[in-house]
């Protein structure tokens, strides 16, 4: 089934019947290897909507400012961040029309630029064909290997959304997902403290504090960010690997138990810092310690906003043990 066609028809009907005031989706721009967010209000504009393996961006970030009720195109993974916004009362269920799309996986940001088989200028289109990603170029068609997909797609358990108002792409509705696989986390855990410090300080020496990670994050909805506060100034604007790392730790900590590992921060980062590792680590601990998997049940309480008497003691605490 042609998802884009299916999506356009649904969007047009929703807008012309007045079920929603605006729809957030993806559109093509000047370049066949990038998609842009499209925020449309006119039924005629529905013709510009597409869904392809380049639909990387998590559009949930645009919900707060859109005219409500708003329809939003979500993949199974993006849906989890929307569920979190519902949990935290950032949006009412009645204000959002969930247009779920079944997704076979999306391409990594630089997958097309670094493929030795073709040049970016030769790309004509990128399409999904029966679960495989195909690039159509002026010199022929190429199938993309599995490792060209985003890390989260390769261990994805939410190909079909489990909560939606409209389902694009047909197939069976998804099931509520289990915890993700937290790829790459274990490798870092195995390092010695010194190696870990060196690794992270090296990575964060690239950071230019453009705040793309924060701005692109669908769950960073604070009106005033603690990183921007001047009194007290928790974090300076100075670029210094240690300061950069601490600035990120604050955000990581703040999203622990809420972050749904959508990978939007890492995707938005222009200098390629593996931010997902840090967020996945926090998510993994929350899951292991408190058995909580964020972004699944709209009625559940986020892990850090609650407690249980039988929570495990902190590993550092002697818990009454005599010295």
């Amino acid at each position: 089934m042609d998802k884009s066609k299916n999506l356009r028809e649904t969007a047009k009907t929703l807008l012309s019947e007045g079920a929603v005031k605006s729809i957030i989706g993806y559109k093509k721009g000047r370049f066949p290897f990038y998609l842009q967010p499209a925020i449309i209000k006119d039924p005629e504009e529905a013709a510009s909507l597409v869904f392809t393996p380049l639909s990387r961006q998590n559009l949930v970030s645009f919900i707060k400012k859109a005219a409500k009720p708003v329809g939003v195109v979500v993949k199974g993974c993006d849906l989890r961040s929307l569920v979190d916004l519902l949990q935290e009362h950032q949006i009412g269920r009645g204000d959002v029309r969930i247009i779920g799309v079944t997704c076979a996986g999306v391409l990594k940001g630089d997958a097309l630029e670094h493929d030795p088989r073709f040049k970016p200028a030769e790309i004509k289109d990128v399409v999904e064909d029966d679960g495989r990603i195909k690039v159509i170029t002026s010199s022929g068609e190429f199938e993309m290997p599995e490792d060209s997909m985003m890390e989260k797609c390769r261990s994805c358990s939410v190909h079909a959304p489990y909560l939606y108002d409209d389902l694009i792409g047909g197939g069976e509705p998804g099931k509520a997902p289990g915890p993700p696989a937290y790829p790459g986390v274990e490798e870092i855990e195995k390092m010695t403290p010194g190696e870990k410090r060196a690794f992270w300080l090296d990575m964060f020496s690239r950071c230019i504090r453009c705040n793309a990670c924060r701005q692109a994050c669908p769950l960073c909805f604070c009106e005033e960010c603690v990183m921007d506060e001047a009194k007290p100034r928790w974090v300076t604007a100075e670029v210094d690997p240690v300061e950069n790392l601490f600035a990120h730790l604050i955000r990581i900590y703040h999203s622990a138990g809420r972050c749904v590992s959508c990978g939007e921060c890492e995707r938005a980062c222009p200098v390629g810092i593996p931010l997902s590792l840090l967020y996945n680590k926090a998510a993994k601990e929350v899951n292991e310690l408190f058995g909580y998997n964020p972004g699944v049940d709209p009625e559940a309480q986020p892990a850090m906003l609650t407690y249980r008497l039988e929570d495990p003691e902190c590993k550092s605490c002697l818990g009454g043990r005599n010295l």
Partner: peptide, 26 residues
């Protein structure tokens, strides 16, 4: 506090701050 600092401790360890450097005690 126990919930929060439990997670924080793991994060600190992940960036290379030795576990002995952070302690929650009753």
């Amino acid at each position: 506090a126990r919930r929060r600092l439990d997670v924080l401790k793991e994060l600190l360890e992940f960036i290379g701050i030795e576990p002995e450097r952070f302690r929650l005690e009753w």
